[in-house]
């Protein structure tokens, strides 16, 4: 029961994250809607298949393939935010963008990029039947990746005033 609940929560999170990218950047484009549907239906299908097969205690089918959905979802967010960050940096030079918002896209791109890396590293450990948290390499790696990603997210969405002032101070003068 606990395994199935974890799977369901992961599924909801994955669909929510992918929907955010879709709504934010590509809600008018058919290919993006199809990508969102593929991620949602694929993960939903995995959940149903694992539930039908049983064995949620290990959840080999679900957790073996679910990271692919995470990689697609966060990889997409990373690419869209990275692209938008580059666009806003150009607009910033002409006084058409806010330096804090521009920086926020860069931070979110970096955080989602790290999420992809963390997901892939975690998947490798899982495939090798290694417990990442207690592994002498995996544990510290997870700590560094997790803390860095959380810090980037905090600076993006809960920024201290001193950080905002620093971002504004180093923004280029509009041409």
């Amino acid at each position: 029961m606990l395994g199935a609940t974890a799977g369901l929560l992961a599924l909801v999170g994955l669909v929510a994250n992918t929907s955010f990218t879709w709504i934010l950047f590509r809600r008018a484009e058919a290919w993006a809607g199809a990508l969102l549907a593929s991620v949602g239906l694929g993960a939903g299908g995995l959940f149903v298949a694992q539930s039908a097969a049983g064995g949620w205690a290990n959840g080999a089918l679900f957790w073996g393939w679910f990271p692919l959905g995470i990689a697609v979802s966060f990889g997409w967010a990373f690419m869209e935010c990275g692209r938008y960050h580059r666009l806003l940096r150009r607009r910033l030079q002409l006084g058409m963008a806010d330096p804090v918002v521009t920086n926020r896209f860069g931070l979110y791109a970096a955080a989602t990029g790290l999420a992809v890396v963390t997901n892939l590293v975690g998947w490798v450990f899982w495939r090798r039947h290694l417990e990442m948290v207690t592994d002498p390499v995996g544990g510290p790696l997870l700590l560094v990746l997790g803390v860095t990603s959380s810090t980037l997210m905090m600076l993006a969405f809960l920024p201290p005033r001193v950080y905002l002032a620093w971002v504004r101070a180093r923004a280029p003068e509009a041409a």
């Binding site: 950047f25 926020r104 905002l164």
Partner: peptide, 10 residues
């Protein structure tokens, strides 16, 4: 996207 991101945080 920038208007949405601007609303998400101060």
């Amino acid at each position: 996207p920038e208007a949405v991101f601007a609303r998400l945080a101060p």
